[in-house]
């Protein structure tokens, strides 16, 4: 199990827009560089990319949750 962490504090989003599908669902294949979510920090959206390959195990926080820098956002089964 590997963690994908937020580099910045802010608000976490599991989808690009409220109408878009979630970036990843449990069991999805994740390759290096895949976007797994967005963190909004001071009105700027930062794409959270995986730096590992594996299988998506799930989000560790809910859509629109407040997150701190270094907090785990999602987990991968490697």
């Amino acid at each position: 199990m590997a963690d994908i962490k937020s580099p910045v504090p802010g608000t976490f989003y599991t989808q690009a827009t409220p109408d878009a599908p979630v970036y990843k669902a449990q069991g999805d294949t994740v390759t290096v560089g895949d976007v797994i979510g967005l963190v909004e920090v001071m009105k700027t959206f930062i794409e959270i990319k995986s730096d590992m390959a594996g299988t998506f195990a799930g989000y560790a926080v809910e859509n629109e949750a407040a997150v701190s820098a270094g907090q785990t956002l999602a987990q991968l089964d490697g």
């Binding site: 910045v8 504090p9 802010g10 608000t11 920090v41 001071m42 009105k43 407040a66």
Partner: peptide, 8 residues
């Protein structure tokens, strides 16, 4: 502590 939720 500057909160991250609003403009900069």
């Amino acid at each position: 502590q500057i909160p991250p939720f609003y403009d900069s």
